[in-house]
Write a protein that binds this DNA or RNA. Structure first.
Length: 840
DNA sequence: CAGGGTTTCTTTTTT
DNA sequence: AGAAACCCTG
């Protein structure tokens, strides 16, 4: 077939919003076929992409969008419009009929980015984009692995273990082997295994190279072996397996690989600087040419690949476009290898390189700061971001006396921005470690500031959610012993560790699964109560499994129904609701929330199965949670912030031992990576950038002195307007400092000298408040003023802010907010229920 | 086996 | 400070 239909090709109905659903692969009409490297050879190039698609691109961007060739590297500085380039490149390929949508594979860093890219491409094309694969590495691999599961000894409903599951499994193995006596820790072992998998070292390869005279290494090998075996028996993959096993699959089964190599003709990878070796290898496999004999065989099996073949009958490799910025590489700790991008031209000879340096995001002041900071990393290609939008406002700096003081500054400035017309959703607060959210959250709650914490103690990591999910997993994948053991005695049914061990060894001895052992609990000679409990649970799970059995004449039940059935039948929710522990109330609400999530899932994916739901949940990233329409300030780690942008950005905790983090000091390349992290944070800001730090920071329940980060000095002084500079905070706060030291004897005052050396004493604005207003801790923690009646005109006293007059009261019930004009610190909003205030 | 009390450890970043 | 691990009793 050489001619093209005029209408867009019919493609399978892959629901665009849910990349995980398996689309009907065979149903994809590939009849148009196409060769990446020979776009014009077979006459497919009906017409060049219209100028409309490239409107508004600068010459470099346009070149990157239009270039046709086997390999293209787009070096895209922060904010240089790479997403525009990528989406237009994809749209151009499709519009010019060089490619069908189903021939496109685009890899993004988060599911959210994937969905956005898909929407933008569809927008550009007017909706003719079904069948594209736009997803993360992990989602794409899951999709492939589910499809090919049988080939590698798994079933289609395999479970995905997250790092928590991995840790739980390793913990048991280490305990059973008594490996902790040899100094093995769960975290250390998990990290080592992860590293090996990211390097594509499987257990056999490792065993061959292991030094067997080292007992330490022998033990590790045994742990690794048992871990691998447990995963296999549980019909489960861990995160790293998803990538590595796909690579192994392609290498072991070239014909399977050929299916994907011929399907995907144009592969695009975003954030290429953060790919690890396994991901790099996956891309290499996918862009490999198909040999003549396999191509021949495919054709004989009815796969219409003829027009892809070259003169010798082979199918050339797919075209590859990668986008990245080595200055934004921040994932070396999980195996990302900066060499992948640095050596791209060597890996793909003849590759074209396009540089994007013009920044469309930030003001020049922000960019100058970013450029100055990153210039301190040696060993990098010099690259300078520039913008045409002008200097903009100065960067604002602030040094708090404590983490809470810093948080109060952030809250106050956010309120000012909001009062000046900026939406909360356009403001973000970044920090290095999740632990830093505590002070921020305390202050934000008290200030009645709407905020959302991205990532951190994620919803899906909460115990009650993991419990509920474990019920679902057990139903979907009965082989998953880990999930089964988790719910065995949750809620309490009198099945203790001893019984659990008995069941496990009964299964082991007879070659059953744990699940089978439960069904056969009657023959174990346990007490009648325990036996009854096990059989009851077993029956409940069987009944639930029947609900999703495709063979069930009643039809397949929605996920929500299965979940509520399990939660009711097990009594899990009831136990939480009847508990005296006040936290269990919130837990029950979370479980209800999960039920709501399953309903939402069913609404978005009418054909979504339980396995689809579990997959989606397993692969949500922190950045996926961000709801653009929400009127909340976003709080997140610097890592989560990658790829995002906000009008105003607060970078908090810019202190030594935090940024750069203490732990990074030992790592080779650590400080440089931390600097890139700072750079990423700075370049997220469009209009306003705030840098803050504290003189003392609570850590492990102790208060320790903190030093300004070395990176602060790298920013030219004239770019920063210090509201309270490190030097000034120290000078003015001398007595404060001593008071703190007196309270906490462990802190030496001698190191504080450095505070004065490098910073101007006194900012351009005087410190707003006397130090006495700033105790190091938030007072009145578990206060409840629920019944306090306040009206405009009332006078109150606040524990920190002193006296003031209520000007307005808004909100209802527990969310009533008092607007107060304080005598010394100005206007504040306070959540009445918990604010440390008294009516005068 | 369950529940309560005490002790110890934690904080790097995440798909 | 808070969570998890551990230990003890009923």
């Amino acid at each position: 077939m050489t001619s093209l239909p005029d209408a867009p090709p019919p493609t399978s109905a892959a629901p665009s919003s849910v990349p995980i659903i398996l689309d009907g692969w065979e149903g994809d009409d590939r009849s148009g076929g196409g060769s990446a490297t020979g776009g014009t050879r077979d006459g497919r190039r009906g017409h060049a992409p219209s100028d409309r698609l490239f409107a508004g691109l600068n010459p470099q961007q346009r070149e990157a969008a239009e270039y046709r060739g086997a390999a293209l590297l787009i070096v895209a500085g922060a904010g240089s419009g790479k997403t525009s380039v990528l989406t237009r490149r994809i749209a151009g390929l499709i519009e010019s009929r060089e490619a069908w949508p189903s021939e496109i594979l685009a890899i993004t860093f988060t599911n959210k980015a994937a969905n956005e890219m898909r929407e933008r491409v569809e927008q550009l094309l007017g909706g003719r984009a079904q069948g594209m694969w736009i997803s993360t590495f992990h989602s794409a691999c899951v999709r492939i692995l589910r499809r090919e599961a049988e080939t590698i000894g798994k079933t289609q409903s395999f479970t995905i273990y997250d790092s928590g599951d991995t840790r739980a499994l390793l913990k048991r193995i280490i305990k059973e082997l008594d490996a902790d006596t040899l100094g093995f820790t769960v975290a250390g072992t998990a990290g080592r295994i992860s590293k090996l998998k990211n390097e594509l070292t499987d257990i056999e390869t490792f065993a061959r190279s292991a030094n067997l005279s080292d007992p330490q290494e022998v033990m590790f090998l045994e742990i690794f072996r048992q871990y691998t075996r447990a995963l296999r028996r549980a019909n489960a993959f861990d995160f790293d397996d998803l990538i590595a096993e796909t690579v192994f699959l392609f290498r072991a089964f070239p014909k399977v690989a050929a299916l994907y190599q011929t399907r995907f003709r144009h592969i695009l990878v975003d954030e290429y600087q953060d790919t690890n070796h396994a991901q790099y290898s996956l891309i290499r496999e996918l862009t490999m040419p198909v040999s003549p004999d396999i191509a021949e065989e495919m054709e004989q099996h009815g796969r219409n690949v003829g027009k892809l073949r070259d003169v010798v009958g082979a199918i050339p490799g797919a075209s590859l476009t990668v986008v990245g910025d080595s200055d934004q590489s921040i994932y070396a700790f999980r195996g990302a290898d900066i060499r992948n991008i640095v050596e791209f031209e060597r890996d793909f000879p003849g590759a074209k390189v396009v540089l994007l340096e013009q920044n469309y995001r930030s003001t020049q002041n922000i960019l100058s700061a970013a450029n100055a900071v990153i210039a301190n990393n040696f060993d990098r290609k010099d690259k300078k971001l520039w913008t045409a939008v002008g200097d903009g406002d100065k960067i604002v700096g602030y040094t708090g006396y404590s983490g809470h003081d810093e948080a109060q500054f952030v809250a106050d400035e956010i309120e000012k921005l909001h009062a000046a017309g900026m939406d909360y959703k356009d403001i973000a607060v970044f920090y290095r470690t999740n632990a830093q959210t505590r002070a921020l959250e305390e202050i934000f709650i008290r200030s009645a500031l709407p905020y959302k914490v991205m990532g951190g103690t994620k919803f899906y990591e909460r115990a009650e959610i993991k419990d509920s999910m474990a019920y679902l997993i057990t139903v979907a994948n009965p082989d998953d012993t880990l999930a089964l053991r988790r719910i065995l005695n949750t809620p309490k049914r009198g099945i203790g560790p001893a019984t659990e061990t008995q069941l496990a060894s009964y299964a082991e001895d007879n070659g059953f699964t744990f699940r089978d052992a439960m069904r056969d609990a009657g023959s174990l000679g346990l007490g009648p109560k325990v036996t009854g409990a096990i059989l009851q649970l077993s029956a409940l799970l069987d009944e639930a499994a029947a609900k999703i059995d495709p063979a069930n004449p009643a039809g397949v039940a929605p996920v929500a129904d299965v979940l509520t059935f399990l939660l009711d039948g097990s009594g899990y929710l009831e136990v939480l609701r009847n508990s005296r522990d006040p936290q269990d109330e919130a837990r029950a609400e979370n479980v209800d929330e999960l039920v709501a999530v399953t309903r939402e899932f069913a609404r978005n994916n009418p054909d979504g199965t339980l396995v689809d739901f579990l997959t989606e949940v397993s692969l949500v990233a922190a950045a996926d949670e961000i709801d653009d329409s929400s009127g909340s300030v976003s709080l997140m780690t610097l890592h989560t912030a990658k790829g995002l942008e906000y009008d105003a950005v607060f970078l908090t905790g810019i202190e030594e031992d935090l940024l750069p983090h203490r732990m990074s000091a030992n790592e080779p390349g650590g400080p440089a990576e931390e600097r890139r992290l700072f750079y990423v944070g700075i370049t997220r800001a469009k209009k306003r950038l705030f840098l803050s730090l504290a003189m003392t920071r609570a850590q492990f329940g102790e208060t320790a002195v903190a030093m300004p980060s070395r990176y602060l000095q790298e920013i030219p002084a004239d770019l920063i307007d210090w509201r309270q500079s490190p030097g000034a905070a120290n000078g003015r706060g001398g007595s404060q400092s001593r008071a703190l030291n007196a309270r906490r004897p462990g802190i030496g005052g001698g190191t504080a000298g450095r505070w004065n050396e490098s910073y101007p004493v006194g900012g351009s604005a005087p410190a707003e408040r006397p130090k006495a207003e700033w105790p190091n801790r938030v007072t009145g923690k578990v206060r409840d003023n629920g019944d306090l009646e306040l009206a405009p005109g009332d006078r109150i006293r606040h524990a920190d802010f002193g006296e003031g007059r209520v000007t307005n009261v808004t909100g209802e019930g527990a969310k009533r907010v008092a607007h107060v004009q304080f005598e010394k610190v100005g206007a504040k909003k306070l959540l009445i229920k918990i604010a440390p205030i008294d009516k005068l």
